[in-house]
Design a protein around this nucleic acid. Structure first.
Lengths: 204, 204
DNA sequence: TTTTTATTAGGTAAATCTACCTAGTCAGCA
DNA sequence: TGCTGACTAGGTAGATTTACCTAATAAAAA
């Protein structure tokens, strides 16, 4: 049976870790457990789909702090807070910080696993959209500075003549840049270039 | 002093309504109060910036239900739950349903007003992004069906010859459609058309 | 030091686009 | 019934692009 996804569990209680490990391993996930938030942060994760399960109250670093660290690193992993001691204010903060949900202990194994599956699925759907933007940015990153300038102006609908005036070079130079752009990006028209530039412009 | 934004308050407690009315009116907002969720839903709102403040526990329709009604209507208004009887599970549900935040009574007037301002500002920032997409969709909606087909293929980088084969019409017809598209959308190049089509494709 | 790459610029030819015409058919509307 | 708009298709002319080619200079990398 292939592994469904990676589950990262951070909790200072060894018993909780081993219990959750069993549950998710049995459910077909690859499980990684950490009893300190720092240990998790020091790990470099695969970019496979997965989910992070955190307790709120831990020594050294709280679940909320850890969550904020992750947000800074733009970590592409949904976060589920699994805790026995949440209050309303903390819940609001966790959710505002982007947690997928907050689950209060105790909860049935089935419901927990199902929630994790929901989190992973929903996160994957969103991630695939933003991955398009990132891919566009990556492709444009291969261009040289001048080429990028030409690309942006061309994607704005300017003709080679317009661009040559704007950049104070000859039309031929602009055409040479365009030709290089097409080769580097393996595209064949301004429309395809515009698509890339527009997608790359989108921040989120 | 110009009105800052519209505040819609739904609460079954008249005293709460009048108190909040005073607070936000004094803070420079235009305030609309409703003591039943249905009354609010029956109102058609201006598309000016604003914020909706809800209690959780109301007769006839709860704050959560009202919130879901709004989500269905894609109402462009941030929601703040302002309540004295929230628990963790309800908070999770409210936040999952898209509430900007949940505030527990009592809270200082200043903090309440500040939170509402944050909600409006953050919501406006996001809204302006999606407004771009909607604008693109609106523009493309002016096209006829055939024109839309040509627009999409052209934005994909296909030449007039390619498109004519794909749609089983002559190259001249494709050119005629293109010409109409340019006139209708007031644009002058494939790049600008591609920009519109790509933005319109984005769902959120 | 040699090689590669970026930037610049020109030649040529074919393909393509855009703009400006005409014009027939058909459907829906006033 | 006459008008409008959509869809179709053709003519012509000029602008533009794309795809080939060469080539000089400077900077960066091997």
């Amino acid at each position: 049976m292939p592994t469904e996804a990676n589950i990262y569990i951070v909790d200072d209680d060894e018993l909780v870790l081993s219990t959750l490990d069993s549950i998710f391993t049995f459910a077909g996930f690859e499980v990684f457990t950490f009893n300190r938030a720092e240990d998790f942060l020091a790990t470099d994760l695969s970019d496979a789909p997965g989910c992070l399960i955190l307790d709120l109250r831990m020594p050294h670093m709280s679940g909320l702090e850890l969550q904020r660290h992750l947000a800074k690193r733009q970590l592409q992993l949904p976060v589920i807070i699994y805790t026995g001691n949440a209050d309303v204010a903390t819940t609001v903060r966790a959710m505002s910080d982007g947690a997928f949900t907050l689950i209060q202990k105790p909860i049935s194994n089935d419901l927990l696993v199902e929630t994790v599956r929901d989190a992973i699925q929903q996160h994957q759907e969103r991630f695939q959209k933003t991955a398009l933007y990132q891919q566009a940015r990556d492709q444009l990153a291969c261009l040289s500075e001048k080429e990028r300038q030409v690309a942006i102006l061309a994607a704005d609908g300017l003709t080679a003549a317009d661009i040559s005036k704007q950049l104070h070079v000859s039309i031929r130079t602009v055409e040479a840049h365009k030709s290089n752009i097409f080769k580097k990006l393996n595209i064949h028209s301004i429309a395809q270039l515009t698509r890339l530039v527009v997608l790359a412009e989108l921040t989120h």
